[in-house]
């Protein structure tokens, strides 16, 4: 079964999102949490890289962390799904393995 990857650092400050994107397989799930949620925004310098990931991976973002930082559903790239805490727990349960990119 596919791997779940979580990323929690801002892509503008650390390289962990980039590492995750380059080392995750097609069909795997990538969940952006905490400071990494800004990687889901439209019009950023990582938006192009994110669009490429959305094309063949299941990219999600934690809604509560997005709202905490002042962002809404309309601010994020098309094709990224918003999940809540319960959805996060389900994702962990549904995947065979979780890799946390710190």
């Amino acid at each position: 079964m596919a791997m779940l990857h979580t990323v929690n650092k801002s892509p503008f400050e650390r390289n962990s999102l980039n590492s995750c994107l380059s080392k995750s397989k097609e069909g795997s799930t990538i969940l952006l949490i905490e400071d990494a949620v800004v990687g889901a925004l439209k019009g950023t310098k990582v938006a192009e890289q994110m669009a490429a990931a959305i094309a063949n991976k299941n990219v999600c973002v934690l809604g509560s962390d997005l709202n905490t930082r002042g962002f809404a559903e309309t601010d994020i790239l098309d094709g990224i799904k918003i999940v809540d805490y319960a959805g996060f727990v389900d994702m962990v349960a549904e995947h065979s393995n979780v890799q946390s990119w710190l």
């Binding site: 801002s10 503008f12 400050e13 400071d35 800004v38 809604g63 509560s64 962390d65 709202n67 905490t68 930082r69 002042g70 962002f71 809404a72 809540d84 805490y85």
Partner: peptide, 23 residues
């Protein structure tokens, strides 16, 4: 500057995360 600009984002809402909204 850098990610510091996120500190003064409008409409920060911590209801769901339960963190202290200090904005």
């Amino acid at each position: 500057c850098d990610d510091g600009v996120f500190q003064i984002m409008d409409k920060q809402n911590t209801e769901a995360s339960g963190m202290k909204n200090f904005s």
